[in-house]
């Protein structure tokens, strides 16, 4: 089953990428997407098993497409909860604010490469038999510098396809220490508090720099859009897959799938 799916995905991706077509349409866009989120994850701080959380997600994005470059500012949010059959339920809230810049590659039409900076907060809150608020909360907070490759191409007169892959390279990461709701620096500095109230700022400032050996955050997106009339607006279907690994004595693994509808509003007026 897995091999079959893998073949389909590879076929679809490379089939799409092999089309050598024109670059993305110039203009300023306000994009919005809404859809279903599935989060398959294990936080070793809370659980010995992988759990699945389902919920809703949304993306709001400003995009400026120029002759040879693309700027994007994107806010992505997701809220998902695990199923109820076990003694504990996890409510996962994930928000990412990202700015990306990419530039067209000479000689490879439609291919852009660039970098991004993002701020991401994944909060995992347990309920059920978790009665202590400090123990109930786990988190992966990160700010990353990474690289990206994007491929955009029109398909005939009114359709187009956009794919992109992101990989974080240098990360500032905040995770709870072993058996403790605060980062390890709190232990080293001799700090303790019975709850998290008023400590968000201190927690955010207590991260450490990590690279690919201990922190991996990679995203793949694929979208197909169709022009709406000749206004430059578009509608589409969007898939975003994200893999996140945060190492340590209590590592976190997560695969998040988003599938939804996208709307692109052309702020530049009629084409």
């Amino acid at each position: 089953m897995n091999l079959f799916l893998y073949k389909i995905i590879v076929f679809c991706c490379f089939g799409t990428l092999s089309s050598t077509l024109l670059a993305q349409t110039k203009g300023d866009y306000l994009n919005a997407s809404v859809g279903y989120i599935n989060h398959h994850f294990n936080d070793a701080r809370h659980s010995s098993i992988f759990r699945n959380a389902g919920g809703v997600g949304g993306i709001l994005q400003y995009e400026a497409v120029r002759d040879l470059e693309i700027h994007r500012l994107q806010l992505q949010v997701a809220l998902a909860t695990t199923h109820q059959e076990f003694a504990s339920v996890s409510t996962n809230t994930h928000g990412t604010l990202r700015y990306e810049y990419c530039r067209a590659l000479t000689g490879l039409q439609g291919v852009y490469v660039g970098g991004y900076v993002d701020f991401s907060a994944l909060l995992l809150e347990r309920s059920g038999l978790w009665t202590d608020p400090g123990a109930a909360l786990s988190y992966v907070l990160s700010s990353s510098l990474g690289g990206l490759i994007r491929y955009s191409a029109p398909l005939g007169e009114s359709w187009s396809v956009n794919t992109a892959a992101y990989l974080s390279l240098l990360n500032y990461v905040v995770r709870p220490a072993f058996g403790f709701p605060y980062p390890a620096s709190f232990l080293r500095d001799g700090r303790f508090s019975f709850n998290l109230n008023g400590l968000a700022g201190d927690i955010v400032q207590s991260g450490i720099v990590q690279t690919l050996d201990t922190f991996v955050n990679t995203t793949f997106s694929a979208e197909i859009t169709r022009d709406v009339g000749d206004s430059g607006h578009k509608v589409g279907l969007l898939y975003v897959g994200n893999y996140l690994f945060a190492g340590g004595t209590k590592p976190f693994f997560g695969v998040q799938n988003f599938a939804g509808i996208s709307f692109h509003y052309n702020l530049s007026g009629k084409q």
């Binding site: 995905i9 799409t16 989120i37 599935n38 699945n52 389902g54 197909i224 279907l237 799938n257 599938a259």
Partner: peptide, 19 residues
Amino acid sequence: FLAFFCCAITISFSGCLVD
């Protein structure tokens, strides 16, 4: 692309069965 999109949704929803 539509096949890929459908696969993505199927994978997402099939995750519901794993628990």
